[in-house]
Design a protein around this nucleic acid. Structure first.
Lengths: 194, 194
DNA sequence: GAGTCCTAGCTAACTCGTTAGTTAGTCTAC
DNA sequence: GTAGACTAACTAACGAGTTAGCTAGGACTC
């Protein structure tokens, strides 16, 4: 056999690292705690991953990939997309925190991957919205996309607004999702200009 | 004279601490760096503020107070309010990061202050929106308020979306502010239900 | 089929720079 | 000569990263 059970150990480390980084960020995370939670020796972290930093980068990339895999973008159903993003964000609070930490603690990160995904979505939205334009243009796709993401994640664990300010709303995800979808529909139909 | 120039030193420490915490968070901040930036001895930090944690809490409270002081809430002009929040967020990237760090690193923080502000705004919105309701109710004020904040700050330095994904938009604040105002107007006018 | 070597997977214990927090004392003005 | 503002130097612990070595089992030799 090629690998023995080292792959299982790696997986356990990545899982423990995800939890630790999600809870404490890069600077606050403790390598010893990760090793203990993974039930293995600290040195293995340095054998399998080179440093705390690269371990974080690995965890982040692995989890970002999950986002892109699980969230299909539907340019012709933006409210539905927002609802799915909302569900995903509520179902994965740890992942949302991880992304927030990365945004604060890392300079740039893997801009390439994210920019490609962004451009693809913008292009798809432009293609889907070539129907008639009345007086005043629609809001720009690039703007609309960010607005959708901001709205859909405003009640996630990583947001300073939603869950902290109105815990009552966050406790009722179904109506919250409906309200987000309604709001996105309103923005998508909105026209700018006089 | 009562105080000598210790007040000036305290102010320099708070300023240096704001910058350090804003850049690195609580766990990543270094007390020695703060002292050096403030041009004073490290021990003074512990004399004037008790610990790193309470220094952070002091910095946060002082700056949150600025937010509440400088941002007048206008329930009858929500797009205008959103535009002002946007301007404030763009003008104070360090403060936005500070709030983001606080949300991630602290358990609860000063819930009382924020909850009071939130309730006051919700009540003001309800009072301002007692005109006729057509078929389908308006979106709940509590929801609308969080949505506005999420939209208005989506391009701030602390957001994982706006500035990182579409730096082009962030470079043109005037149209961005207009788009945010339009979007908020659309949501505020939106009705929910069938 | 016993002895020896080798490798993958793993661990205990260590190093050493860093860091929050402290102590003891200096200096200046009144 | 005392009190307020401040400093240099210290301490104790922590924490990332390292070293040296253990153990099980396969394989190869005779």
């Amino acid at each position: 056999m090629a690998t023995g059970n080292s792959e299982a150990t790696k997986a356990r480390i990545l899982e423990a690292a995800r939890d630790e980084f999600s809870a404490h960020g890069i600077a606050g995370a403790r390598v010893d705690r990760i090793a203990k939670a993974a039930g293995c020796n600290k040195n293995l972290l340095y054998i399998y991953f080179q440093s705390k930093e690269t371990l974080f980068a690995t965890v982040l990339e692995q989890n970002l990939r999950r986002v892109y895999d699980e969230l299909r973008f539907t340019p012709d159903d933006l409210p539905g997309y927002a609802a799915r993003v909302f569900d995903f964000a509520m179902a994965n609070p740890g992942l949302m925190r991880l992304m927030a930490w990365a945004g604060l603690e890392q300079e740039a990160g893997d801009v390439a991957l994210r920019n490609a995904a962004q451009s693809a979505k913008v292009a798809a939205m432009e293609a889907a919205a070539h129907d008639a334009d009345g007086p005043g243009a629609r809001l720009a796709p690039e703007f609309l996309l960010t607005a959708i993401l901001a709205l859909a994640t405003a009640w996630s664990a990583a947001s300073p607004f939603g869950p902290r300010l109105s815990p009552g709303l966050a406790a009722d995800p179904a109506t919250l999702r409906a309200q987000i979808a309604d709001a996105v529909a309103a923005i998508a139909a909105a026209r700018t200009g006089p």
